[in-house]
Simulated scan of single mutants.
Amino acid sequence: MAREVVKVLVVDDEPMVCAHLRTILGSADDIDVVDAAHDGAAAVESVLRHRPDLVLMDLRMPGVDGLTAIDGIMELDRPPKVVVLTTFDADEYVLRALRGGAVGFLVKSTPPEDLIGLVRVAADGHMVLSPVAMRRIVAASAGEDAARERAERLIGKLTEREADVLTRLGEGLSNAQIAAQLFLSEATVKGHVSRMLVKLECANRTQAGLLAYDAGLVAR
């Protein structure tokens, strides 16, 4: 059965980067690059106009930057998934973007053959970053004490089973992999994740995964 077409908005202040991404993604039958924007303000306007499923968002742009744009997008009704585009994966702004609602990040040097698959994964609501990258970003962050206290407070709301699911989610496992490890059905795991996100006040799995790191459920 054919995959549903994923509508993508590309945001970068370099037109050549936008053109490059449009060419790569446009080669896939199930991905449609609906627009390209060159600053954060234009990105929010484009989301309202085109209602993409996924936004590839540069962070460092003149005028309205990517972080501000992500904040604006997340305030919209039914916001799209946002994946950060970055040159350096240890960029301090990446963590702020993930905490703000981005589902993951891609370095701009990502091989073209990997980019299409990663866009599909992100559009399906999964994290687009490795556990190794997550550890490096969290370890390099400032204000860890406050983040740990908040994470421990929120995780205290979870049942023991939900905490088990959260730990494995933080390790980068899919619902199917979590189900296999915990001897549960995939539907049961999906239900746990949905309830867990509400209790943790998280918009997506990536934010929940960050809480697992902050609380020490996942080794750094």
Results as ranks from 00 to 15, higher is better:
residue 120 R to M: 03
residue 216 G to S: 08
residue 107 V to H: 06
residue 90 A to C: 09
residue 111 P to V: 10
residue 172 G to S: 07
residue 65 D to E: 06
residue 202 C to P: 01
residue 142 A to G: 14
residue 133 A to W: 00
residue 21 L to D: 02
residue 29 D to P: 06
residue 174 S to A: 12
residue 108 K to T: 07
residue 29 D to M: 01
residue 182 L to H: 03
residue 58 D to S: 09
residue 63 G to M: 06
residue 112 P to N: 09
residue 38 H to T: 15
residue 128 V to N: 04
residue 16 M to K: 11
residue 95 L to V: 14
residue 36 A to G: 05
residue 51 R to Q: 08
residue 130 S to T: 15
residue 74 M to L: 08
residue 63 G to F: 05
residue 28 A to E: 11
residue 57 M to V: 09
residue 218 V to Y: 01
residue 5 V to H: 07
residue 87 T to E: 13
residue 52 P to R: 04
residue 141 S to R: 12
residue 212 A to P: 08
residue 105 F to A: 12
residue 67 L to M: 04
residue 184 L to I: 02
residue 155 I to K: 03
residue 17 V to Q: 08
residue 56 L to F: 13
residue 56 L to T: 01
residue 176 A to G: 07
residue 9 L to I: 10
residue 8 V to D: 00
residue 184 L to G: 04
residue 160 E to S: 10
residue 192 H to T: 13
residue 104 G to C: 07
residue 93 Y to C: 06
residue 115 L to T: 03
residue 71 D to S: 14
residue 106 L to K: 13
residue 41 A to L: 13
residue 71 D to N: 12
residue 63 G to W: 03
residue 24 I to S: 08
residue 25 L to M: 14
residue 67 L to A: 08
residue 80 P to D: 11
residue 43 A to Y: 10
residue 190 K to S: 15
residue 10 V to K: 10
residue 160 E to D: 12
residue 22 R to T: 14
residue 114 D to W: 02
residue 68 T to D: 04
residue 18 C to Y: 02
residue 166 L to V: 15
residue 169 L to F: 00
residue 198 V to L: 07
residue 98 L to R: 08
residue 120 R to E: 02
residue 100 G to E: 04
residue 81 K to P: 01
residue 216 G to V: 13
residue 64 V to M: 14
residue 88 F to R: 12
residue 181 Q to A: 06
residue 89 D to N: 15
residue 170 G to K: 03
residue 97 A to Q: 03
residue 32 D to R: 07
residue 101 G to K: 08
residue 22 R to G: 15
residue 124 D to Y: 05
residue 125 G to I: 01
residue 168 R to L: 15
residue 144 E to Y: 01
residue 180 A to D: 05
residue 125 G to T: 05
residue 68 T to M: 00
residue 72 G to F: 08
residue 196 M to V: 12
residue 56 L to R: 11
residue 190 K to T: 14
residue 79 P to V: 04
residue 79 P to F: 00
residue 44 V to F: 02
residue 194 S to M: 06
residue 67 L to F: 00
residue 153 R to C: 01
residue 75 E to W: 02
residue 39 D to W: 01
residue 90 A to F: 06
residue 197 L to H: 06
residue 107 V to R: 12
residue 118 L to Q: 12
residue 118 L to I: 00
residue 20 H to G: 14
residue 139 A to G: 13
residue 179 A to K: 07
residue 196 M to W: 02
residue 152 E to F: 00
residue 199 K to F: 04
residue 120 R to S: 09
residue 88 F to L: 13
residue 91 D to K: 15
